[in-house]
Write a protein that binds this DNA or RNA. Structure first.
Lengths: 116, 116
DNA sequence: CAGCATCCTGCGCGATACTG
DNA sequence: CAGTATCGCGCAGGATGCTG
């Protein structure tokens, strides 16, 4: 066993697998989108709310809190507004997400064909 | 807008984003693990069931069907057994998952520290 | 502007039992 | 061996209204 990576095969591992963990995190509905937006510049809360569009404020809040708790984004208050920004850790994750996005774009037709 | 990628910002895009789509797919609980196992060699159904361990057969079945529908794995029947294997498409996705796994392993302590 | 409180729905995931 | 059928739980995600 023990494949190419720190991947969990036994029951004992299954909750402690870093790869699965982070994959589930970025698999959450709005995470990647938020990270991609913050890659360009910091955003305020309502600004994110408007830009991400059909997300509810409840979910946006929770997603931001989670990303913050993981150290991927930072939240700072200024007198005028709250400011969400990427942390260095979050920024280091970007290339991988970008690569996955490119892979998905390249093979979108193959996947579409397979589904039909 | 329109960040670094084909990422969905508007409501119209949100269900058609290939990147988010594939991320949710591999974010499913057992997907990466199954892909990682099949990266080494083909597996039979019960063989997967035993190896992945705490997964229920119902979920294993559904996960396999989904991965198959996306063209990432193939299912073929021989007289003695059913054989699940990676497709070329699935294999082309592996390096990206490996990269994410390595990233997660490298930064596991930072993430852990952030959560505390 | 930046949220929190409340209520609700769908489905990811699981346990258990049964089938050809 | 390779599944299907049935039942159930918890949580992601959402709608709506209120707050300082």
């Amino acid at each position: 066993m023990s494949p190419l990576l720190p991947l969990p095969v036994t029951a004992a591992d299954r909750d402690s697998c870093a790869a699965t963990d982070i994959l589930r995190r970025v698999g959450e509905k709005w995470s990647v989108l938020i990270l991609a937006l913050l890659a360009e510049r910091p955003y305020g809360f309502n600004e994110l709310d408007r830009t991400v569009e059909p997300v509810s404020r409840r979910i946006l809040t929770r997603t931001l809190r989670t990303l913050e708790a993981d150290g991927l984004i930072s939240r700072s208050e200024t007198p005028e507004r709250v400011r969400y920004a990427l942390t260095p850790l979050g920024r280091s994750l970007l290339p991988l997400i970008v690569a996955l996005g490119e892979w998905a774009a390249e093979h979108a037709d193959e996947i579409g064909a397979a589904r039909a």
